[in-house]
Design a protein around this nucleic acid. Structure first.
Lengths: 163, 163
DNA sequence: GTCTATACGCTGATAGAC
DNA sequence: GTCTATCAGCGTATAGAC
């Protein structure tokens, strides 16, 4: 709290005029971002696209959210474990649903012959771990190169890096 | 410290007959693992292999270390930031050197035509983030399937998942 | 809304008996 | 080498003046 206070130029005690607790702050930040992914998935899934294109759209979604929510996104991979009930269960529910839908698209893309028939779980994990850690690294790209980053990730993660 | 003590069946105070401080414990765990990666890289780089095969060997190295050091490996992605000087600098040096050598192999594989000519930084990041988060996920594979996991990752990360 | 002062629980660590 | 007792510091949070 003292770090946050210093960052916004006040004493730690003064923060409590704006938020009621640290725990609630964490909850709001995490659930807001989780909602963004949930809604993005919903939009993509409602479109009539080949599964492979849906995967590309998901990659673009992750890049967009990472760029537009630079600060809060860094909480997503690890800090959610510190949520207390019932927020913890709410978060896990969103997370599980997201991963389930992501995996379903991967599985479908495999069945339709757009992807190799590999372990869908491993494929999901491999793609998601890269997208989740994007925030720790993407700053090397200037804001004008975001489209290049998106297409680079689509090549890396979907088309493959082998010649 | 109290959690660790409970896990090994003693009081927190008794731990200090075995370790001198929490900070030193963190340092020893992290530097031990960092050394494993550094030595593994050295061995692989000393072999006369095509760059692409070196990348496959690196993937197998990550899986092997993850499996054989299940507990400590989870510290590697995030906890190193809590190291104090001079351990922090020592760790960063190993980490930077490892990533540099990893990237050099990727760049070479691209020049030799074994990989597409993509952004080497993005390619490195994409592969490493998957390998680093393996620990949080690989337990779904039974110990007998470790070879299948290795080859699955080589396909996913190097050969590509597209048909 | 911000400040100072302060309460209070938790955590890393030490002292000293056994 | 383990225990109990204890400490000092930190971190979240509240009270109350301004």
């Amino acid at each position: 709290m003292r770090d946050i206070a210093r960052e916004v130029g006040m004493e730690a005690a003064s923060l409590y005029n704006h938020i009621s607790s640290k725990q609630l702050l964490l909850k709001e930040l995490l659930l807001e971002i989780a909602q963004l992914f949930t809604e993005g998935m919903k939009v993509i899934n409602s479109q009539d696209l080949p599964s492979f294109e849906k995967l590309a759209a998901l990659i673009r979604l992750h890049v967009d959210i990472t760029v537009s929510h630079t600060d809060a996104i860094s909480l997503l991979p690890s800090e959610w474990v510190h949520l207390e009930e019932p927020s913890l269960q709410a978060f896990i529910k969103l997370k599980d649903a997201y991963e389930k839908e992501f995996k379903a698209i991967i599985t479908l893309a495999m069945k339709e012959g757009q992807l190799k028939e590999l372990d869908p779980e491993l494929t999901l994990f491999s793609i998601l771990s890269t997208l989740r850690w994007l925030y720790s690294w993407y700053s090397k790209y200037s804001s004008k190169d975001i489209d290049r980053l998106k297409e680079g990730l689509i090549v890396s993660l979907l088309h493959g890096i082998k010649t």
